[in-house]
Design a protein around this nucleic acid. Structure first.
Length: 312
DNA sequence: TGGCACCTGCAG
DNA sequence: CTGCAGGTGCCA
């Protein structure tokens, strides 16, 4: 489910329900979800049980919790979470009815808890479930590094400390500290296809396949335009388009679903209404009516209007 | 820097 | 059955 706006919705949902809570137990149902954890399940358990969650931070699509050790001292590592292609973080309250009866009528195949991989039990009785069908995402710890001269490490961060495993991730366009003109310059300095550059999380983070296609459509730029072929106004305009589309998605995401609750799908609200390019192959371009096309590019689908988004 | 592996499941 | 899925990291 994860594109930047959805991850931010998740972050905002987790904040009031996890910060200040202490982890009482770790339950691992699928060890592959801990693939990135050095030392595996035992190390993770040792780091987490008894620790208190003190902040939820996001940079691009990477999420992490800051931790305080049992004695109260600041921990030297963060608890990382990445949703991959199919991950979800959900709060469940054992004893309460979170699953609507609809699930039963749809049968076990529709039960999302079928893909529960890891759970953290919290001291208020709540349980934080990491659900992930494809197991591309995961949970793990990563040491905190001092970085970037006092600027906050990401959205929700209390300070500049950045986990090592997020240190290669650039700032995202919803981060107040993002440097739009610097990113624009980076785009224009490369010869690769502009879409690959937008998807490159070391240049600008948070943009996935959907928002790349949407931003390119909005800016009337074709996916395979070399970055260096972008004009001095065009590159910043593209980034503004990407930021705007993600901001709008975040607004809709906030009203159409609460990612922490099971009865919310995540696709319904925003997808039905706001997309102009992604998944619109064969449909008329909302701007000019030309039939939208889809081509494979760098192993992913690219959706575009052959008329509005001309080759350069 | 592109190409592919990592996974499961669903629509066609 | 094949192709495709909102991501990332590692490889040549």
């Amino acid at each position: 489910m994860p594109e930047l706006p959805e991850v931010e919705v998740v972050r905002r949902g987790l904040e009031p329900r996890t910060v200040g809570r202490t982890i009482t137990a770790l339950e691992v149902l699928e060890p592959r979800s801990l693939r990135r954890q050095a030392g595996g399940e035992d190390r993770l358990r040792a780091a987490l049980v008894g620790s208190r969650l003190t902040a939820v931070v996001r940079r691009g699509k990477f999420l992490w919790w800051r931790l305080a050790e049992p004695g109260g001292a600041e921990a030297g590592e963060a608890l990382m979470a990445h949703l991959g292609m199919s991950g979800q973080l959900r709060m469940s309250t054992p004893g309460a009815t979170t699953e609507p009866s609809v699930e039963l009528s749809e049968g076990p195949a529709s039960d999302p808890m079928r893909h529960r991989r890891v759970s953290l039990h919290l001291d208020d009785g709540a349980r934080l479930d990491f659900v992930d069908q494809r197991i591309f995402g995961g949970l793990w710890t990563s040491p905190l590094l001092e970085a970037e001269g006092g600027v906050l490490a990401g959205v929700g961060s209390p300070d500049a400390l950045l986990p090592e495993d997020a240190s290669h991730i650039a700032r995202d366009l919803l981060d107040p500290a993002a440097d739009l003109s610097g990113i624009a310059r980076a785009l224009r300095s490369r010869r690769s296809a502009v879409k690959s550059l937008l998807l490159n999380q070391e240049i600008v983070s948070g943009i996935g396949n959907i928002y790349a296609d949407e931003a390119l459509w909005a800016a009337r730029i074709r996916y395979d335009t070399p970055g260096a072929a972008l004009g001095p106004r065009q590159a910043p305009a593209l980034l503004r388009a990407a930021r705007d589309v993600m901001e709008r998605a975040l607004e809709v995401g906030g009203t159409s679903f609460d990612a922490l609750y099971v009865n919310v799908d995540g696709r319904s609200g925003y997808f039905a209404r706001s997309l102009n390019a992604y998944g619109k192959e064969g449909e008329p371009c909302p701007r000019c009516g030309t039939v939208m096309r889809r081509v494979m590019h760098a192993n992913r689908s690219s959706h575009f209007c052959p008329r509005c988004q001309r080759r350069r």
